[in-house]
């Protein structure tokens, strides 16, 4: 078990290296990083001073090495906008983002999985068609547009809910629902197709033959086995969730990491951008590691190879 975890951790190293390389390159793609940060009419001496102060006069690989060393210590330098450590800014907004993302994920699982199960069990009935239609629509409507739509309906027309900001649980409803919808569509679709496979297996017939109740068979025997691929999809969708977080937080003025990222990008506040990129990558890698480990718990046939 420990050996498996260790090997999985080692496998994530190239990914992390790639992410480090890309976020380092962000400030170098368009040539001189000082152009990005200083105003165009900065005198050359000041430029030179800035370069020396930030190590930009070093060879590129030395700069990259320095960047990696600092990044691994969680140090991305100070935000150019707030003059505070970038890492601190990210961590401050972590709570808001976690609140939003976890709520959305729970909502998506609680709606998506049962919807998929029912659609598979009552295949080709009205319930199935309804679930399939909603999943198709859920994939077609961009999350930022869904956000705008819910604001129009629930904040502008009905005046039931606030259109943005963070505060009471009422503020959470619209952004969380918006963020959840695309996930619901994906989870329901995957659950449905996995359940269809599982429901045709021999052991389901065996369970019926020995007289188990239908609902026990469907929700316990079948779902447990259908859940493994669903879990993979959920794990991989954490990436989608992060993209969604960026957009949803922007639409609803939710004070989280995603909105910080967009604001930092607009302001060319690169230390913060780099911190967010690396931070999201870490979460993504971590979640997928956990998903891999959960496999073995859910399905004893999968060993820790």
């Amino acid at each position: 078990m420990l050996q498996y975890v260790a090997r999985r951790l080692i496998l994530t190293l190239p990914v992390l290296f790639g992410i480090l390389l890309i976020s380092f390159m962000l400030t170098h793609i368009s040539g001189d990083p000082t152009d990005l940060i200083l105003s165009p009419d900065t005198p050359d001496e000041a430029r030179e001073l800035f370069r020396r102060k930030h190590g930009l006069d070093q060879p590129i690989w030395v700069q990259f090495y320095q960047f990696c060393v600092h990044a691994l210590q969680g140090d991305f330098g100070n935000s150019l906008r707030f003059n505070e450590p970038a890492t601190k800014l990210v961590l401050e907004r972590l709570g808001a983002t976690t609140e939003l993302a976890v709520t959305a994920m729970l909502l998506a699982i609680l709606v998506g999985v049962p919807a998929g199960v029912i659609a598979a069990y009552r295949r080709n009935t009205a319930a199935d068609v309804a679930v399939r239609t909603i999943t198709l629509l859920g994939q077609a409507v961009p999350s930022f547009y869904l956000g705008i739509l819910t604001i129009i309906i629930f904040a502008v027309w009905l005046r039931w809910l606030p259109s943005g900001g963070r505060g009471t649980w009422l503020h959470l409803i619209l952004p969380a629902t918006t963020l959840a919808l695309n996930l619901v569509a994906l989870i329901a679709r995957t659950t449905r197709s996995c359940m269809l496979d599982v429901l045709n297996q021999d052991y389901i017939r065996t369970a019926r033959a020995k007289g188990l109740g239908e609902s026990w068979i469907v929700w316990v025997h079948a779902l447990r086995n259908a859940f493994i691929p669903v879990l993979t999809v959920i794990g991989l969708q954490v990436g989608l969730l992060m993209g969604g977080v960026v957009v949803t937080e922007t639409v609803f003025s939710w004070p989280g990491v995603g909105r910080l990222a967009i604001q930092a990008i607009y302001a060319r506040d690169f230390p913060v951008v780099q911190a967010v990129v690396l931070f999201f990558a870490l979460i993504f890698v971590g979640v997928n590691l956990i998903v891999d480990l959960l496999y073995a718990v859910l399905d004893p046939r999968i060993g820790y190879r």
Partner: peptide, 24 residues
């Protein structure tokens, strides 16, 4: 395959946003 996995393993949208912001 490793390259594919590496890129699939990351929220690319965020990177695209960041890179577009830099290169215009």
């Amino acid at each position: 395959l490793r390259l594919i996995d590496m890129q699939l393993a990351f929220p690319v949208v965020l990177l695209v946003i960041a890179i577009v912001a830099v290169v215009g």
